[in-house]
């Protein structure tokens, strides 16, 4: 009983600071670069947007993440990716997740409807012109989609964490659950084009999948303020390394 109480209190301190820091009508724009022979080459623009969607009974926070290649790349390798999630504006609990990707001729759509029981999702997916596949996937109570996970990260109270402390999260992607580990690496002051020199929380992300490579090679710097805006993201994936730099915010 005492142990459970301590766990609940810890979770409250870490996650419970304030969910309200994800405000609607926010737009963060990033320039994504890919490392080619040691030189960073700008490839695409990534936008993270929030808005409110009202249905007849409820309001949802619409979290959207889209990626588009710069026009100079469109003739060679066109990317039009859209990831979006509809979540509870207070708890960030997802109700619906959409993924629609077009990457150099390959396209795929995916939709998860999070069932009210909190233990399963109805997944619908289609790759290219192959038949639509539908299935019910069992998930844990705290599983979230990729978009929600990014925003949920922004609600964590990092001041309550020790340097080196690891925060586990569970993400559902491609109909599979992954454990994602967020390691808090302390604060660091970095130069940003939007905020100038800014003190940021530095985080390392790893997962029990082969989608992320290396130890402490997938890093996020989030501003050390109430909004926790991700200003720099460095990633290392099986096909190479790259980074996302914040270029504008609203």
């Amino acid at each position: 009983m005492r142990k459970s109480l301590i766990i609940i209190l810890t979770l409250f301190v870490v996650y419970g600071q304030s969910f309200a820091q994800i405000r609607p009508n926010e737009k963060l724009v990033y320039a994504a670069s890919y490392n080619m022979s040691g030189l960073m080459t700008q490839l695409a623009q990534v936008s993270m947007e929030t808005s409110i969607l009202r249905t007849t009974k409820k309001s949802y926070l619409h979290l959207s993440l889209s990626a588009e290649t710069f026009s100079k790349w469109d003739s060679f390798f066109k990317i039009r990716d859209l990831y979006e999630s509809y979540v509870n504006p207070v708890t960030l609990k997802p109700s619906l997740y959409n993924r629609s990707i077009y990457e150099g001729g390959y396209y795929k759509t995916e939709k998860y409807i999070f069932n009210l029981d909190g233990k399963s999702i109805n997944s619908t997916a289609q790759v290219k012109r192959f038949p639509i596949s539908k299935q019910v996937v069992r998930i844990g109570a705290n599983s979230v989609d990729a978009v929600t996970l990014i925003y949920k990260l922004r609600t964590v109270n990092f001041n309550a964490l020790r340097v080196g402390q690891v925060l586990p999260m569970i993400m559902i992607f491609d109909d599979k659950e992954f454990k994602v580990y967020i390691k808090y690496l302390g604060v660091q002051t970095i130069s940003t084009s939007v905020f100038g020199r800014k003190t940021c929380f530095k985080l390392s992300i790893s997962a029990n999948s082969n989608k992320l490579k290396g130890r402490d090679r997938n890093l996020i710097w989030m501003t050390d303020d109430a909004r926790k805006v991700p200003v720099l993201i460095q990633f290392s994936i099986p096909v190479g390394t790259g980074e996302l730099k914040l270029v504008s915010e609203r």
Binding site: A31, Q42, Q45, L53, T55, T56, K57, K58, Y60, H62, S64, S66, E68, T69, F70, S71, K72, D74, R80, L82, E84, Y86, S95, L96, N98, S100, K111, I113, L116
Partner: peptide
């Protein structure tokens, strides 16, 4: 300066997805 092309089809797809999502969410309630 690196620019993203104005892609009407992508814009349309985003709007359609949102309308579809609204229907799905209403079905959940």
């Amino acid at each position: 300066k690196d620019k993203v092309a104005v892609d009407q089809q992508f814009k349309k797809e985003k709007i359609e997805k949102q309308q579809e999502a609204k229907k799905d969410l209403e079905g959940l309630e």
